[in-house]
């Protein structure tokens, strides 16, 4: 029997203090989320369903006009431009995430094989570039890929590009920029996964008749999956909504969804269309996350590995 059963006032006092406690701990977070996430999203949602007025500002009445336009239906009938932008965004996300995985995996593994005192330094080397402003780094790539630079000349001499074209602006340059930008976000969670791995398990796999390749596939890879999926979330979602890199390295034909949205709020001045684009991005992101969760759950043997 607890004290609270004997003395009723003690019990109610405990309840009060508990709810007060809850108020103090949860309220700031809830306030933050409401003001900076729920309200803006609701506003965005509202704007997306309004009509475009003069100067591109949203107006009543409500309509689905913006979504029609986003889907490509304009004054001149249907045009595939926006659809291409969406597909390009998806494609760029897919390709750059895949490349990031392929590059980050051996890097993360290599760092775990280094001596313990070197590891923080190696990790630092991976992370340091992202301390510089993204715009500045992207400008750096412009200089490296412009016509007449060694890289461009090399590509030209091999016949990859037409003379004097340079490697940017192009979709290739965007992919390169994305991979470069997001590499650390994959290396870090993968490193964490590798570090948790017991090397004796690899030896046990070999001892149990697994060739080095199969030991990797059956004993190592499954254990790095949580890191891989976490990294994929960290890379793919911001990559999908990326604005700076396609803006600077992509040119007109390298536009991604982020640029489409940004343009509607700036030059093209069509707020409802921009809001509709933003909502499309949000929905695509949620679908992606949901799919990752499912994959993670299946591969992780029922354990939650993503988020």
């Amino acid at each position: 029997m607890a004290y609270s059963d004997v003395i009723p006032s003690l019990r109610s006092r405990a309840l009060v203090s508990e709810s007060r406690h809850l108020l103090f701990t949860v309220a700031p977070g809830a306030f933050w989320i409401f003001v900076f996430l729920v309200l803006p999203s609701a506003y965005l949602m509202g704007v997306a369903f309004m009509t475009t007025g003069p100067y591109g500002l949203p107006e009543m009445p409500l309509s689905v006009e913006s979504f029609r336009r986003l889907a490509g239906f304009g004054f001149l009938g249907w045009s595939p431009g926006n659809l291409y932008t969406l597909l390009r965004s998806l494609w760029q996300t897919l390709v750059s995430t895949a490349l990031v995985v392929v590059i980050a995996y051996p890097i993360a593994y290599y760092i775990t094989t280094c001596r313990e005192k070197w590891r923080p330094i190696m990790l630092l080397l991976v992370v340091v570039p992202s301390w510089t402003n993204q715009v500045i780094r992207t400008f750096g790539w412009m200089n490296l890929l412009a016509p007449g630079t060694p890289l461009a000349n090399l590509a030209e001499s091999v016949g990859l590009i037409d003379p004097n074209m340079g490697l940017y602006p192009s979709n290739f340059a965007v992919t390169l920029g994305l991979v470069y930008n997001f590499l650390p976000f994959m290396v870090l969670p993968l490193y964490a996964a590798f570090e948790k791995l017991d090397t004796a398990q690899v030896q046990a796999a070999q001892d149990l008749y697994a060739s080095p390749v199969r030991a990797f596939w059956h004993a190592v890879f499954p254990q790095t999956l949580p890191g891989l999926l976490a990294g994929t979330v960290l890379v793919a979602i911001p990559a999908f909504g990326m604005y700076v890199i396609p803006e600077l390295l992509g040119g007109g034909k390298g536009m991604m969804l982020g640029n489409l949205v940004a343009n509607q709020f700036a030059g093209s001045a069509n707020w409802p269309l921009g809001a509709a684009g933003a909502i499309l991005m949000l929905i695509a992101t949620f679908i992606g996350l949901f799919a990752m969760r499912r994959v993670g759950k299946r591969l992780g043997g029922g354990e939650e590995v993503v988020i």
């Binding site: 398990q201 030896q203 001892d207 149990l208 059956h218 043997g301």
Partner: peptide, 28 residues
């Protein structure tokens, strides 16, 4: 190489595979 030897080891740390069930560990 170790995977071609008809020799098996019980490791000091056991080195069981944490991502597999007991059954899959035994069947490895």
């Amino acid at each position: 190489p170790p995977h071609k030897r008809s020799v098996n080891t019980v490791f000091q740390s056991y080195a069981l595979f944490p991502h597999l069930s007991v059954r899959d560990n035994l069947a490895f």
